[in-house]
Design a protein around this nucleic acid. Structure first.
Length: 421
RNA sequence: GAGGGUGUAGCUCAGUAGGUUAGAGCGCCAGGUUGUGGCCCUGGAGGUCGUGGGUUCAAAUCCCAUCACUCUCCCCA
């Protein structure tokens, strides 16, 4: 085999795309009911947009972006999008959406790219569904967005998941907490893992999210971000919890939940799946009240989430969920000679125009082979036409399940195979 | 960037005290049926045993290197 897809990139063959179409249909139907509009963004943006939007210090920007120089003069640094929120914020500002509508509800579905070691549920080209709700600072916005995530998972037939929520406060509150946390961590740095000692200075919040047993032990009585929230942030978080209760959404408060993007403020949340191993974040999101301003717009509070569709597919498979009906073939036309094949081409066109799913042999195979193919494909009927049928204008139609076969006049085929529905 | 595991037919895998033409199941093709699928029977196509080198009379099998895939850590969806 001379060519292979690149590491972390893969083909989705028709065998699998059925599941994807099913999932995407559920997503789009859900978004219709929540009255969100679909946004389609470029796959490529200026590198700077992501650096500014996501944060220079994050791993995503620091070491996982696919960046290239284009052919302009001087060359422009561009990047494959590592997520879609920055692009959505850019679009919001570029099109002056704030001037046109008081609140904006967008969703998107599509690929994003990160240069990482692939592993289960993680690829270099991965697929995300996400929502962005822009220009509301109200806790109802949290309830709306989190509710979408909850509804989505349940409509996909998943039940083995947990919603974790936390508040990171506003930047000033987080800075204060950060100081306190660094003090705490320094005192017990000897008990921390090597990774955590490194992270302690650059991103101390992440230490709390460590999976190392020693780190978990050492940080059990670490200060909680929740104790550093000001009145407004505290009240906001409390109200979010009330509203989730009103929406009957089950959640757990997770003071250790931090998330890796710089732009989050106040509420952050994750839906984690039970049976996915390390890559178990199905949906991750939060409020980002400063991002719009960061990319050049007038300040606008916002909240959203990203949802990993590759992982959703894994969960769907693990849960035994998925589409129940496969597209069926209404009839397979079995043509016995060249005359009959000519007839079949015309008949197939007519039947297909009426809405029926029709297949016929494209390899010039024997009748036996055509019948075998009709059976294998699960066709409901075989329309058999040879010289005799052409002479009488009557096709032999065999019901593949019952074995019953009868003559059907050509002009009655459409009605027989595909009655008006 | 760090650490495990695995590479034999399209797919899932047998085959290692080195020994003739490398096997099975599934799938695919054809025949058994003159104009009728499934089940059954028979036959067939399909393999540089990941790649390169070494040891040996002889390597899928032993040694070295290398690549790919996969899982885990980091990080995230």
């Amino acid at each position: 085999m001379s060519y292979k897809s690149l590491k972390g990139f893969r083909d989705l063959l028709p065998e699998e795309t059925g599941k994807w179409l099913w999932m995407e249909r559920i997503i789009r139907d859900l978004m219709r009911r929540y009255c969100f509009g679909e946004l389609r963004l470029p796959f490529v943006e200026s590198t700077e947009l992501f650096a500014r939007g996501i944060g220079e210090g994050t791993d995503i920007v620091g070491k996982e972006m696919y960046t290239f120089l284009d052919r302009s003069d001087p060359p422009l640094s561009i990047a494959l999008r590592p997520e879609m929120t920055a692009g959505a914020a850019r679009a919001y500002v570029q099109h002056s959406i704030a001037q046109q509508q008081p609140i904006t509800k967008w969703y998107y579905v599509g690929p994003a790219f990160r240069y990482e070691q692939p592993q289960a549920g993680r690829y270099r080209q991965f697929y995300q569904f996400g929502v962005e709700l822009i220009n509301s600072d109200r806790p109802e916005a949290e309830a709306e967005v989190i509710g979408i995530g909850n509804d989505l998972l349940s409509e996909l037939g998943l039940s083995n998941y947990t919603l974790l929520i936390n508040s990171l406060g506003m930047p000033s509150e987080r800075a204060e907490f950060r100081e306190g946390l660094i003090d705490f961590l320094r005192q017990r740095s000897d008990r921390l893992s090597e990774d955590s000692r490194r992270r302690m200075e650059e991103n101390p919040l992440r230490v709390l999210d460590s999976k190392e047993e020693s780190d978990i032990q050492a940080t059990q009585d670490a200060p909680s971000i929740l104790d550093f929230l000001g009145d407004e942030s505290r009240e906001h978080f409390k109200r979010v919890q009330e509203l989730l209760g009103a929406a009957k959404v089950k959640y757990e408060i997770a003071p250790h939940l931090v998330r890796g993007l710089d732009y989050y403020t106040r509420t952050v949340f994750e839906f984690v799946g039970g049976d996915l191993g390390a890559q178990n974040t199905l949906i991750g999101g939060g409020r980002y009240d400063n991002l719009i301003e960061e990319v050049g717009g007038k300040p606008a509070p916002a909240i959203g989430f990203g949802c990993g569709l590759d992982r959703l597919i894994l969960s769907i498979e693990a849960a035994g969920s998925g589409p129940t009906t496969e597209p069926s073939i209404d009839a397979y036309i079995v043509a016995l000679d060249d005359q009959a094949r000519r007839w079949a081409v015309g008949a197939a066109t007519l039947l297909r125009c009426s809405g029926a799913n029709i297949e016929f042999d494209l390899l010039g195979r024997s009748m036996k082979a055509q019948m075998r193919e009709a059976n294998r494909k699960g066709a409901r009927n075989a329309i058999i036409v040879g010289a005799n049928e052409l002479a009488e204008n009557i096709a032999q139609v065999k019901n593949m399940a019952t074995n019953q076969q009868q003559g059907v006049p050509f002009e009655g085929l459409q009605e027989y195979i595909f009655p008006e529905r």
